[in-house]
Design a protein around this nucleic acid. Structure first.
Length: 502
DNA sequence: AAAAAAC
């Protein structure tokens, strides 16, 4: 059997790997490390969770032992699609490079230039970057790329999705032709292959079997849900409370606004919860992720920024508050649980308008996902004046169903469940009242002292960026009329006005 | 119907 000791890595690297508790390399590591050490180009087709990161970090550390960095002339460069992934790769360098004295610089947006500049000035052995910030540094003349020996392009297919390829091309043009290039992608459609052909010279191609598209250790269930957000939130809370073995969970929403709304709602209901999406200031993003990783936060509400690549071991549950629009995102999302052979559970809220996307998902994973508590036909029919009425005109089907479902409603969950329901709503009223006091205080604090740090720590997605805040402000006001109450989301300002009047 | 990434 191949061990790390057989791959040609240096002693320093080997001892760090041993200290981290690893002896046997994963297939991508066994395949990529030897040719990488021989300065070959690599075309690695591997998904996250296959040990891909170490497959370039370890040989790079070994190769970097010869030579020294000069000011403003980095020796190696790694490109990542998101800030969190970049930070994660940096952590890997710290971990496996603990016996080295290398300068690692993390160049990502959303944080100040100062420290990054200092590190560049000192001479960086490894630059780990998101494309925008790297180009920014280049344009400011802080960076000479002529000394780069190794270029890593990670998550190439995702870079393509995100429209980063022109940036990548610009960056690659700045780096000498003689460089070594390590190229990784989860998939290799023709478009990515063409890209690889442009960037690579006679590459060693390593393809590892993609982990069976959805791990067998993940129990997947669908939850039939009404379409309104507050109804979905109520159902989600129910499902969360139902779980007896929930250690921690990521809750995915399709939109950033919904991440923010759901986060506030869960917080109000007393859950230990954090939020993560791309419009939050970087400090909150970092804090949230760290808090979740070391179990200070149980639930993390997130956009698809967290769907791929993030290494959070041991997530017990994934909840999809929304059915993802692209089927492959479903696979990535639920791949956050059931890792390393552990068991996991994935619940997806499905509304009537999601069936199209659900079909696509089931087709992609080539199996039907079981319903947890009855499928969509078990939902109570929408109340009078709902949009379905308009659509159902002339068909007669809706008209037939509504009275029946209505008649059934009082007896629906006639026994204990009914009692629980009223307890639940009473709880909510109390929670909302208590919260209104808290909200008021918070609002007071804010207007009185405008405490900057507080805002930073606030998980509220509002940014440092004033324009962004203003946009959010108007966006919130544009939400449209909500004729019958606010559900469980009474805006703080309403409560303040109400109290002032009283 | 989205999200991500520079200021």
């Amino acid at each position: 059997m191949t061990t790390f000791a057989d791959l040609g890595l240096s002693q320093k690297v080997l001892s760090a790997v041993t200290d981290a508790g690893y002896t046997v390399p994963t297939p991508i590591q066994a395949g990529a490390i030897p040719p990488a050490l021989m300065r070959r180009d690599i075309c690695g087709i591997a998904q996250t969770g296959t040990g891909k990161t170490a497959s370039f970090v370890l040989p790079m550390l070994t190769l970097l032992e010869k030579g020294r960095a000069r000011a403003r002339m980095p020796r190696t460069l790694i490109l990542e699609p998101t800030r969190e992934l970049a930070a994660q790769v940096a952590e890997n360098f710290e971990k496996y490079g603990k016996n080295h004295k290398l300068n690692i610089a993390l160049l990502i947006g959303g944080v100040s230039f100062e420290e990054q500049d200092r590190k560049l000035e000192r001479g960086a052995d490894v630059l780990i970057c998101t494309p925008g910030r790297l180009l920014d540094h280049c344009e400011r003349g802080k960076l000479l790329m002529t000394g780069v020996e190794i270029l890593v392009i990670d998550e190439a297919d995702r870079m393509l999705d995100m429209g980063f390829i022109p940036d990548i091309e610009r960056i690659a043009k700045l780096i000498p032709f003689t460089r070594q290039t390590l190229f990784f992608s989860a998939t290799m459609p023709p478009e990515i292959q063409k890209l690889a052909d442009r960037f690579l010279q006679n590459p060693e191609r390593i393809e590892v079997a993609k982990p069976s598209s959805t791990a067998l250790t993940v129990t997947q269930r669908l939850i039939a849900s009404p379409t309104k957000d507050y109804e979905k939130r109520a159902i989600l809370r129910e499902i969360i409370r139902e779980q007896t073995d929930l250690k921690n969970a990521i809750i995915f929403c399709n939109r950033k606004k919904d991440v923010a709304d759901l986060f506030r709602s869960l917080e109000r209901h007393g859950f230990s919860v954090g939020a993560l999406h791309g419009d939050m200031d970087q400090r909150s993003r970092t804090n949230m992720l760290a808090g979740f990783k070391d179990n200070q936060i149980t639930l993390l509400v997130a956009s698809d920024v967290a769907a791929r690549g993030l290494d959070i071991p041991d997530v017990s549950h994934v909840f999809n508050f929304d059915v993802p629009i692209h089927a492959e995102d479903y696979v990535h999302r639920i791949g956050r649980t059931g890792r390393a052979g552990r068991s996991g559970a994935a619940f997806t809220l499905v509304t009537k308008s999601d069936t199209k996307y659900l079909d696509a998902i089931e087709k992609m994973i080539s199996k039907k996902i079981e319903w947890h508590n009855g499928d969509l036909s078990s939902l109570p029919a929408p109340a009078e004046g709902e949009k379905d009425e308009r659509r159902g005109r002339g068909k007669g089907r809706d008209r037939d169903r509504r009275p029946a479902a209505k008649a059934a409603e009082p007896s629906h969950k006639a026994d204990t469940a009914n009692v629980q329901d009223s307890v639940e709503s009473a709880e909510e009223v109390v929670a909302t009242k208590v919260d209104s006091v808290k909200q008021e205080r918070k609002a007071d604090n804010r207007s009185n002292q405008g405490n900057r740090d507080k805002r930073h720590q606030s998980p509220n997605p509002a940014n440092d960026d004033h324009r962004e805040r203003r946009r959010n402000h108007y966006r919130d006001q544009d939400d449209g009329p909500t004729p019958i109450g606010f559900g469980d989301d009474i805006p703080a300002f309403m409560l303040i006005v109400a109290n002032a009047k009283a």
